[in-house]
């Protein structure tokens, strides 16, 4: 698409969100949608990140704070459960970690190149609350 000539696109610079008919999109999750190639869902901003959030489900209480406050639709929740982070669309802002209420946090920021298994193995212990 990036190299299309002037005669190779729809007039008016109009873009379609989906290929074909998309009925009831408000109750259809991403994995069941037929995104068009011009939907930004098909693009990635992973290279914006300096740090990435890693998710440790052992501590997660599925409160969904991370889901509601994620500005990039990158907290994947299904059936009221937090199941992971969408690494194509996460920009690494760190809000999910800030709002995570568990102790220790179920989400923590790591350097982009951090190995996930090692990070999970070295996850911090529960912090004692200051009196």
């Amino acid at each position: 698409m990036e190299n299309n000539g002037w005669n190779e696109f729809e007039i008016g610079a109009m873009l379609r969100s989906f290929d074909g008919a998309a009925t009831d999109i408000a109750t259809t999750h991403q994995e069941d949608r037929n995104y068009s190639s011009s939907n930004s869902f098909t693009a990635s901003v992973a290279d914006w990140r300096i740090e990435k959030p890693l998710f440790n489900k052992d501590y997660c209480i599925d409160c969904q704070f991370c889901w509601i406050y994620c500005p990039d639709m990158s907290i994947i929740s299904r059936d009221k459960k937090m199941i992971g982070v969408d690494m194509d669309h996460c920009k690494g802002c760190g809000i999910c970690v800030e709002v995570c209420p568990t102790n220790p946090k179920s989400l923590l920021m790591f350097a982009e190149q951090q190995n996930e298994e090692e990070a999970l193995a070295a996850w911090p212990e529960k912090e004692e609350k200051e009196k």
Binding site: I25, A26, F41, T42, V45, C63, Q64, W67, M73, D88
Partner: peptide, 16 residues
């Protein structure tokens, strides 16, 4: 919030 989190977003990532 749990119930809200079952919503299917109609706003997509990789925006700028």
């Amino acid at each position: 919030l749990k119930e809200f989190s079952t919503s299917a977003d109609r706003f997509e990532g990789a925006n700028l």
